[in-house]
Design a protein around this nucleic acid. Structure first.
Lengths: 196, 196
DNA sequence: CAGTTAAGGAACTCGGAGTTTCTTACTGTG
DNA sequence: CACAGTAAGAAACTCCGAGTTCCTTAACTG
């Protein structure tokens, strides 16, 4: 933020840029984010940014991947319900501060670039979700909380599909949305029969 | 398409513009759609467009509302499953030709304009879905195909929430997605107990 | 310490959104 | 049928942001 005493390079410089992008996203959103403003905020020049990322979309994508902390601490509460609730809330929390519009903007701007689009879809929308969820489900099956016969790909994906819908369509995750998704939809579909 | 013999006005002109927007959307998508191209395609000038709509986003929104035929023919096959499948396929079909990127672009560009955003959400994402679905569900309750005690807002919204997820996230609706949504998720949640 | 790399910064091109202005065809009214 | 008034069609214009280029100079390399 304050004037750099020296000329920064490598890691340090890059971190400052990522931070500047993230802050701009939080403050003005995607549509109003300009490369010049980001450069100014990071106290550097546009050329430095373009030397690293081919365009605005890639820059923002990098900042999101960088800014969203990895979910290394997968919930393990011993019960399926609380595990899933906590995981969903974790992910919802990661998107707090920046609105759904960042995702829209990114997707819209990348619509013409199939490679970037695929990357965004897999890194930001899929990988972060499929793996963790699979683990939670696996554990629950072992505990007998889930009937394996009732498991399908679609049902496992359900919690995140619905959470994503909240973020993308409503722009925010209502306080009780997570509980609803888990209690009204997910659990009734995978619990062993009899347990309503 | 061909040179207009005369100078058009009102309805006729407007229809030509809406058609031009729709065709451009289908051909180049939202990001690459320019007002100048639309005007050229409709054989008119930019000023004519800006006299009617305040900006690009409103123009595209108008074209979508105009171009998406109303679902006046609500399915009524006598069975819940086929009703819902048909309704979902109807809606999916309406978005054929233009990709999900149009929605993204529209949402991204309108992120700063709360009124337009609300309009898009309600007209394009909500109104078209909530009403028809409610009717189908109502009929099914009367036929005894649905247990009213198992109905919640969220469950009724489920089919469209998931369909929307397909369109927005995957960019397309896989051939068997609709059947999966209905058979693996929706029906098991609302059918009277015992019917698995 | 000499040579190389790249940061910082400014000036540039290019293109699209939105505006303005002008001429000229329609339209509705007397 | 003539004469406003309105708005279509077309062009030129402003503004602004993405991406590029170039130059100076600080930091790193050996």
């Amino acid at each position: 933020m304050e004037a750099p005493a020296t000329r920064r390079r490598g890691e340090e410089l890059e971190a400052a840029i990522m931070r500047a992008v993230w802050e701009q996203l939080a403050e003005v959103g995607y549509a109003a984010l300009t490369v010049k403003d980001v450069a100014a905020r990071a106290r550097t020049g546009k050329a430095v940014l373009y030397r690293r990322w081919p365009g605005r979309a890639e820059l923002v994508f990098a900042a999101m991947v960088h800014g969203i902390p990895a979910a290394d601490d997968l919930p393990d509460t011993g019960a399926l319900r609380s595990d899933v609730v906590r995981l969903l809330e974790q992910v919802a929390g990661r998107f707090a501060g920046i609105g759904g519009d960042v995702l829209w903007g990114l997707l819209a701007e990348s619509a013409r670039d199939p490679e970037l689009l695929a990357l965004i879809r897999s890194d930001l929308l899929d990988a972060l979700h499929r793996g963790p969820m699979a683990t939670l489900v696996e554990r629950a099956v072992e505990r007998g909380e889930i009937d394996p016969a009732r498991l399908t790909e679609r049902r496992v994906a359900l919690p995140f599909d619905l959470l994503r819908n909240e973020i993308l369509v409503r722009g925010t995750v209502a306080p009780d949305a997570v509980a609803e998704i888990v209690d009204e939809v997910f659990l009734p579909l995978v619990r062993p029969d009899g347990a309503r």
